[in-house]
Each structure stands twice: as structure tokens, then as C-alpha cells.
Design a binder for these strands. Sequence first.
DNA 1: CGCACACTGTGTGCGCCATACACAGACCAT
DNA 2: ATGGTCTGTGTATGGCGCACACAGTGTGCG
Lengths: 261, 261
Amino acid sequence: MDEQVELPRVLQQLWGIEGPARPGPKPAFHLSDIGQAAIRLADTGGLAAVSMSKVAAELGFTTMSLYRYVDSKDDLYAVMLEEAFGEAPEPVAGQAWRGRITGWAEAFRDSLRQHPWILQVPVSEPPLSPNQLTWMESALQAFDGTPLTANERLSSMLLVNIYVRGTMQLTLTMLTQTAEEAATAGRLYNQRLRLLATEDRFPAIAAGVQQPNSVDDLDLDFEDDGFRDGLGTVLDGIQVRIDRQSPIDRKARKAPTDRQG
Amino acid sequence: MDEQVELPRVLQQLWGIEGPARPGPKPAFHLSDIGQAAIRLADTGGLAAVSMSKVAAELGFTTMSLYRYVDSKDDLYAVMLEEAFGEAPEPVAGQAWRGRITGWAEAFRDSLRQHPWILQVPVSEPPLSPNQLTWMESALQAFDGTPLTANERLSSMLLVNIYVRGTMQLTLTMLTQTAEEAATAGRLYNQRLRLLATEDRFPAIAAGVQQPNSVDDLDLDFEDDGFRDGLGTVLDGIQVRIDRQSPIDRKARKAPTDRQG
DNA sequence: CGCACACTGTGTGCGCCATACACAGACCAT
DNA sequence: ATGGTCTGTGTATGGCGCACACAGTGTGCG
């Protein structure tokens, strides 16, 4: 009853696993060519601008020829992600965990800023492609030297990952707009919110919108400072986890039983 | 240069804003009928099962008749969300902020569990519909009594919001599968990861996968305990924010200058 | 009372999409 | 040299969101 551990074709190719030499014509291009062409389209027109026919046209081939390289559009997405992220940046040595994971988060954010369509890619499966794993590895290494257990490192990484994705999702609309458009959109939202969130039914919202520009900030301020602040809060939470684990300056509340540090 | 503060048609209808009586036949049904029909489809077949024609068929009408009620498919999504979430649950009185926001987060999570397709709905605009605002209001009220500023409450709310969405996104696949399928999928992922993440190139990942079931947990453990743990970490971070604001048992590190407490 | 007209539901049609399938030619192992 | 397999291609199918023109309906106004 062994399971189907064999990788899907895309993953095999992304990992550079190649079968023995075979007869027939050589492929005209490489997976990464397809990925780059698709990314070119997505960067300018959003993920909606990526279709099999458009990508094929971008490469100067017919639609169906793409299916010789990629089994489905989901596979195309996988290739795009792999190409867009590239290899994870090496963490700066000599930093504490907080500096390391902050650097990772900012690199991640920068990738999303450069390729906002990433946030629109429907996520179907957990990451298994090479570059995705390098990013995962890099994030996990940030917690080297902390007393966190393996599981805690995983969930801490996920926390940071989720934070970056989530905040960038909020600013997604802005990323594809000019600063001007984004500003007026934010002001419009603020006005409408002030109109609808009456003080009797929505006191807390009303209190938040009362001071001008406050809800603008809700989206706009995530430009840079807001990002760092929010990330800091998440990391503060992780720090609490760490303090709880390490009996250095604080008595361990409950000794971890089964887990290995 | 006043801007277009007037609401789009869907929002007007969702808020129950109606113009004066008009000639012509009365509409055959209500927006919420459409929403419920669409939700019925999405709950069983995922968001992909929702198309204008399918929804119309579900109601016993033709495709194009839907456009008399809804200007676009995005509008349909808005109606679905509004209907699926319903009004936010009242926070339990007499709890501290932590208990209140935890209750809110769990209610939010439960909504996502019941309607996993929510996570697939492309988010285009910030929330302005009535029920969405009640959820926003409810979350903000959870921070009543804390020394957090209005902006800090907003960003804390977003943090929790993002956390819930993010973690549920990870378990999305599981939500639509049977427990058995999910388990084998998790085991398969674990196996593949162990195969690819070799110790030389991916030491941190390898360390995480070494102990059996650890990466299963990465997804599976979010069933209940993992959710609470992660949420606890996020709230710990917010607690640090609160402590920093309140000079009760801790000297204010840096007096907030411009902001009002 | 009647009538004009806005509104309802409908049918048809367009352009786009992902992708199944059959085919012609190219190329390599044998 | 040749057989088999691979490549790129052309055609076709079923679905999608939505624009538009049309016929009937019932209400507000004269």
C-alpha cells in the first residue's frame, strides 16, 4: 500500500530530474522561458492577463504547444511562482533571530511588491518546488539558536508568512494603481465609511473614522512603517513564546514533555 | 471637485436604500434569494461551481435575468459574502479584551469552516456592506477598555483578521476533503518533503520533517489546538503593544507624541 | 379611465477561456 | 535506413461573463 510518492511532471522538471535520452525533436524552449513570458504578462496586466493563448503568443507559438511543457494552467502557475520568487536570499549572518526573520519578511514583501499577481494565484497545494523550499528553509534557519521546538519554528514561520501575505493583500489594489489613484480611492472609502458607520450602530468604527485620514492609513500606512510595526507585533508574540521556552531569565512554566528542543 | 460618494447599486440594495416607487413589474425575488442560491452551489461545489447560469438555473430563471439584480459577478460575490457571514455575533459581556477578540476570531473561523469558498472569493474592495461592518465593529469593540489608540485598534483587528484568514487558507484543502483524504494527502506531502529536502541543502526543513507527523501537523494540527496556539501568539504580541501604551506596571518607553490615547 | 413608459424576464450572440484529440513532420536509438 | 516517439499545429467542444434587442407587464400620471 505504498503511496504515489512519485512527483508530478512539473515538479520533476523544476527539480531538473530528467529521464534517459529519448528520440524525437528537442523541445524548442525551457520551462523557465514559459514562466518568464507569463510573468511579463502578469506584471503588466495582472493575473487575468495570463492565459494559455496569450503566453503562447508571447513566445511566438500556438496555444496548444504549451501543453507539451505544462499539463494544466495550475502547472503554469507553479512555474510562474518558482520563477518569480527565485532563490531565497541568504540570511545576513551574525544577526539575532529577530533581525534574520525581519530581513526574510522584507524580502518576501519585496517579491510581492514586484509581482502583485502572486497574491491572486490560487493556492492549491503546499510548496514542494525548489525555490519555494529555499524560502522555507531560509525562514526556518532564522530561528536557529532559539529554544523553539521544530513544531514551534514551523508555526512561527507560518505566522510571519501569513502576516506578510495578509498585509500585502490589503494593499494589493494600491500596488497596481498609481499613488494618486490609491489616495483618492482611500479618501473615497473613508467618506463612505463615515457615511454608513453611524455612531449609534457602529460606535467603534465611527470613533476610528472620526479623525481624518485614519482609515486611509488602514490601507496606506502599510507602505513601510505600518508593515514594520505590525511585523514587530507578530515577532513580539513569538518572543513571548521563546521566553516561555527558555528558562534563562524566567522559570519555565511547564516543561515540554514529549518534544525535543 | 467632490468625489463620487454615492454608493454602487449593490451596496445601496444591501443597505436597504430604495428609491421612490416605480412603474413596471415587481421583481420576482430578492437579492438574498440570489445569495442563498449561490451559496448553496458554492457550499457543495466550491466557488468554481458558481456561475451566473448555474445560479439562475438554481432559481429557475434564465441567466440574463440575474443581471437585473446584480451588475456583475463581483456584485454576486458581494451578496454571497454578506449573506454567508450574517450579522456578527454579539461579544460576550464581562470578558477582558483577550477573551472577546478570541471569541470573535473563533466565530470568524467557524464562518470560514462552514463556507470555505469565502477564501477563494477575489477581494476587490474594502468592506462596506452592512454585515461586514458589524463584524468590523464587533472586532473593534473587543479592544474597548484597552489603552490602544484608534489606529492601533485598527491594526490589531487586521492582525487577527489576517491570522484567521491565513491559517484557514492553509487548511482550505482539508476543509473540502474527508478527514481520510486529508490525512493521506498530508502523509504524502511529508514523504515527498523528506525526499526532496535533503539534509545538506535544507537542514532546517529536514530537521522539521525528521520526526514523523511533524509536517502533517503543520497543516492538520490547525484543527483546533494549533489555531488557539497561533492566535495566542498573535494576541501576546498585541498584549506587548498594550503594555507599552499603559504606564501601569511599566514605564512608558517613549511617550506617544501626536496620538491620543 | 387610459396611456405612456420604465421596468421585468428572455433569447441570441460575441469573444474569450481551458483543454481534448487527431495529425504531420522532425529527430534519435537501433 | 527506419520505426517509434516526440514536437508543434489545427480544429473542435463546452463553458464562461456579459452586451444588446425584444416582448410583455403593471404602475404613476394625465
